[in-house]
Design a protein around this nucleic acid. Structure first.
Lengths: 188, 188
DNA sequence: AACGATACGGAGCACTGTTCCGTTTGGCAA
DNA sequence: TTGCCAAACGGAACAGTGCTCCGTATCGTT
């Protein structure tokens, strides 16, 4: 439950972890989350072994880099439910938040749904964190009779995530707008 | 405009092209469209050189394998527009056709939107073939006042394609249903 | 039958993920 | 302060894959 940084690790290990996180964040911005591991290691000035020791899979690294933002998104759910006029409005706003996060992370949406081995962890993390929040919002909106009630939260999450794929590589495609259409389609 | 198969090619070349197409189709079914080129070559019983001579990029091979089905989908558009009660109904049915095609092709939807180099050709082919059809259906439905008129055909196509990604690798995700929601969201 | 164009096969190169192990270093105990 | 060793590091090496290149085999024509 606590912070990882205070663990009984050696000082250089802690330092390298931080360095790697910063380097990864920087490389993700410029080259996307699928950037070669070597690039990240080079940017951080460490060897290949170091990166794999700290983050056994690429998913672990991605999770570590974005954990704060994902958690923030999860925490925003209940808050929106309270502060919004209607549950549907809360759902809409929350999905906007999620979409804003995704479309600004080069290639993240794609890798999230990718069935390539090694990314299940990432998929699982997102689902574990955000699915309950989404489910709660959907349930509230359904109970209020604002949206259809035959939809699983998983489907909505994946649908929204999928719509964000490639949003940054083709200016003609506006993911936010299509998500808007999808969310409109949820209404009864 | 005519058939390629009748070109002035050597007999063995024509034979290999057919063999490769069949092998590729078989491998795509079992291993997805991202299957290693070596696997396809092995299945066809030819060398690497042969496959690349006939299909310079993987996209060319994929296009060749699915050309007939894509063309059939394109041709179904105008027919549906005539035979359906309303333009919106035609649009809905046409999108169903497109989705049925995509979800039964392991990994095709993903590679269609992938920004990996080498697949632009594939993306372009699909767009060139299907975009005009989709645009016509959208326009008809918009003119009839059944759907919003501020949407580009490209967005709708990409949105639908995106929703189909991973449809076959997670039984909990029903792409058809989410596309249904999206299409419902198009209504005015 | 001979010959030239066409096509073939697969070794080889480039690139990337991942592992493995010899070397270095941080922190603790004497 | 010094010595020790577990912890951590670096990067060479291996494996999988896309793609090229060129010596060899085959086709079809003369």
């Amino acid at each position: 439950m606590g912070e990882e940084g205070t663990k009984s690790k050696r000082a250089d290990a802690r330092r390298n972890e931080k360095t790697l996180l910063d380097a990864a964040a920087a490389v993700f911005v410029t080259s996307g989350v699928e950037a070669p591991v070597r690039d990240i290691a080079a940017k951080a000035g460490v060897g290949m072994g170091t990166i794999y020791r700290h983050f056994p899979t690429r998913a672990d690294l991605i999770i570590a880099v974005y954990r704060h933002q994902v958690d923030a998104c999860a925490e925003a759910g209940p808050r929106l439910l309270e502060s919004s006029e209607t549950p549907y409005e809360a759902l809409r706003r929350w999905i906007d938040l999620f979409v804003d996060f995704l479309v600004t992370k080069h290639g993240l949406a794609a890798v999230l749904q990718s069935d390539n081995a090694g990314f299940e962890t990432l998929h699982t993390y997102f689902l574990d964190t955000l699915l309950p929040v989404c489910a709660r919002l959907l349930e509230a909106a359904a109970k209020a009779g604002e949206i259809r009630s035959d939809l699983e939260a998983l489907e909505v999450m994946r649908g929204v995530g999928n719509l964000c794929i490639g949003a940054d590589s083709d200016p003609r495609y506006n993911a936010r707008r299509m998500v808007g259409v999808l969310v409109a389609g949820l209404k009864t």
